[in-house]
Design a protein around this nucleic acid. Structure first.
Lengths: 116, 116
DNA sequence: ATAAAATGTCGTATGTTTACGACATAGTTA
DNA sequence: TAACTATGTCGTAAACATACGACATTTTAT
């Protein structure tokens, strides 16, 4: 029982953490950028453009896929991985809301009896 | 050598991943929200409001502090943890840029020879 | 049918994160 | 000074993430 006491946090906190985790590795950031830069993508090509083995890239792709951030449609012998743009917009919205709340109202000043 | 082949990615990808990682645990999201909701905060109080031990909360605080997202000023016997609002605004900006790039230009259509 | 190519799965080694109790340190007050 | 309180540090166990080679599967072409 020494891990993931996530149950005690709010659903929003858990979801934001989950989404942030998806972006918490440079390879996954790179994959999303790569998919955004092209209109169509193949798994093999992705591995070719990253400094990682095909297996590892596949693993990262699966993680993004598990959150539905990307989708892979089988097209004969190859697979077309695409961004889920609608979901990405929703995720962007969630981050926006979080940062908006985090950056307003904070700034503890000298009249708070606080040193910073 | 079986970890963190980060060196091969761009500085932007690495930094975004690093920042995303900071938000990749509900406890850290909760800490930031808590600090934003109050104007002044004490480490002990934070642990009291989270379903985690004081040690574990302290560990999460250290992680946020390592990225300078929060700051802790010693004030006598207690410590005042505060958000680094300026940095948070910069981080927000980085996420905004990333999502803007990710959500535009993608959407591989039927004329791309792609099934999705 | 068979070979080649593309993608997916498994096993596994190693590094990292999370969580917490126990102890150490420092500042406050009686 | 001595007890008390608030933080910080250490060690450690267990879960999770990362990376990759080797093998399996599936699809296309010959």
């Amino acid at each position: 029982m020494t891990y993931a006491k996530t149950a005690a946090f709010t659903a929003e906190q858990q979801q934001l953490a989950r989404l942030a985790k998806a972006l918490a590795h440079p390879a996954r950031v790179a994959i999303i950028q790569l998919l955004a830069s092209k209109h169509t993508c193949i798994s093999g090509d992705i591995a070719a453009e990253l400094p990682l083995s095909r297996t590892t890239v596949f693993q990262h792709l699966q993680e993004l896929k598990a959150l539905d951030l990307i989708r892979g449609e089988i097209d004969g012998l190859t697979v077309c991985y695409c961004l889920n743009t609608e979901l990405l917009l929703q995720v962007q919205q969630q981050f926006t809301v979080f940062f908006a709340a985090a950056t307003t109202g904070a700034a503890c000043g000298p009249n708070d009896g606080c040193a910073c």
